[in-house]
Design a protein around this nucleic acid. Structure first.
Lengths: 255, 255
DNA sequence: CGGCCGGTTGAGCTCGGTCAAAGGTTGTGG
DNA sequence: CCACAACCTTTGACCGAGCTCAACCGGCCG
């Protein structure tokens, strides 16, 4: 199927699409989530995953706390197990970019530089599982399948990021917002949840800085989508997608 | 140094920064450039590279021809050896995005999907070296170092793409253009060339669609940079960077 | 109870887009 | 070798989508 899955011998991983809201079924409730998760996806024997997971450290963050800060030396890699985080970059004059949102199952650590290029902050209380660089290095040495899985994931992330380029370069506010909502819904479906409603843990300001707009424009776009009946917002953080056809049409361009 | 270089055992590759304008010194003039290039970077014995390179196919394109088209089934991966290409995406209504420019040394093939998401067209006459999926798969099986190198490169590309997000979301035309010129200059320096001038093989329209602007705005921004003495343009495709400090200040934000 | 934060809405303005035109260059065919 | 067409670039005049500024509302917390 997927491109750099060309690199994979076994094309039928044990569980590539976890149907669980946390990380994946094998990882539920354990602290060795990264290893387990990647191991399962890469079709490693679970026994190996067990052996590895002793290395994992749990990291807990309260809403608003930073996991890592732009400019810091890289200290490890992470997978999100609970909560939601934002990857942000700030300009000296205050302009702000949200380069992405990180949700359960997401891997943090793809970068070609030795220092973090973004600050990563918890939006809500979150837990992650952390691996030091050294542990990661030895894990990858012992289990080349992990590297393959990481490459696969990096490619998927690259595709997604390129999709955002189109949104920022050429789409109008309604199209950007519709695309964002559809993305959030897809995320839910991939986790086996109802994809006719989405939960937005982030603020309107976060969404604006993610979509390259102002809060006001985001708010107005929500209002317009509500007025035309495409969505309903019970409260600002809970959106029901009423007219999926319309939203898909608006979002057509993205990704 | 770099993040997922954590995944590399040997941290001193034979030649990680090729000082040659084509691909890298070991690859000069041979058709097995991808293998050679990656092999050298991953510190493989050259003998192995020789054995592999028989698999490589040369692909030649005239200016304007497409290498691959959006929607086509993925047929292989490539490295650019000569010329310049653009990665584009077109919306039904004619809106156009240039998601990136591909220059000698660049690898084409990072994607998590089975079909191409972008059309890739030659800007000038170009040559690439092509590997079928099957060959790529077996190469990676025989030489895990390749996979490591690919992951490293994917991460670098992800960083670069995230940098573009900031430009598209929050920078004004002057800042975007300055950032673009500085990027192009960096590319040249990385190849050991004079970085006080850059050659822009692409048209103003390509630059506009890359920076999320219109041709007119791009042209006006060039004019303003010229008027303030930051650059000189002998002809539209040759730009001399006169005031690097000013350009860097404008570009500060990107990447 | 009051201050603060987040969200929404309105009014007006500005930056970058749109439309139009002209000059330059390249390539082609007579 | 020249004439002409097609394309690329630049510049000007105008316009409007989205930004700025401001006000208001509601919920939350001290």
């Amino acid at each position: 199927m997927s491109s750099l899955r060309i690199l994979r011998q076994n094309d039928t991983p044990v569980a590539s699409a976890p149907a669980d809201g946390v990380v994946c079924q094998a990882a539920r409730g354990c602290s060795g989530c990264l290893v387990r998760h990647l191991a399962v996806c890469a079709a490693l024997p679970v026994s190996k995953a067990h052996a590895m997971e002793a290395l994992a450290d749990d990291t807990r963050l309260k809403a608003g706390e930073a996991l890592v800060r732009e400019g810091e030396a890289r200290r490890g890699v992470f997978t999100v197990t609970k909560g939601a985080l934002r990857r942000i970059r700030l300009l000296p004059d205050g302009r702000r970019l949200v380069a992405g949102f990180l949700m359960p199952g997401d891997f943090i650590g793809f970068s070609g530089t030795s220092h973090y290029k973004h600050t990563i902050e918890a939006i809500t209380d979150s837990t992650l599982c952390e691996f030091s660089m050294a542990d990661m290095r030895s894990l990858c040495h012992d289990h080349p399948e992990l590297e393959r899985e990481l490459l696969e994931r990096a490619c998927v992330e690259l595709d997604a990021t390129r999709g955002n380029l189109m949104a920022l370069a050429r789409l109008n506010p309604m199209e950007r917002l519709a695309g964002f909502l559809v993305d959030m819904a897809q995320r839910r479906r991939r986790q086996g949840q109802d994809d006719t409603e989405v939960i937005l843990p982030m603020t309107r300001t976060d969404i604006a800085d993610y979509l390259g707009l102002t809060v006001e424009t985001v708010s107005r776009s929500f209002t317009r989508l509500r007025q035309e009946g495409s969505i309903a917002t019970d409260d600002p953080h809970h959106v029901r997608l009423l007219d999926r056809t319309r939203l898909d049409a608006l979002a057509e361009a993205r990704a």
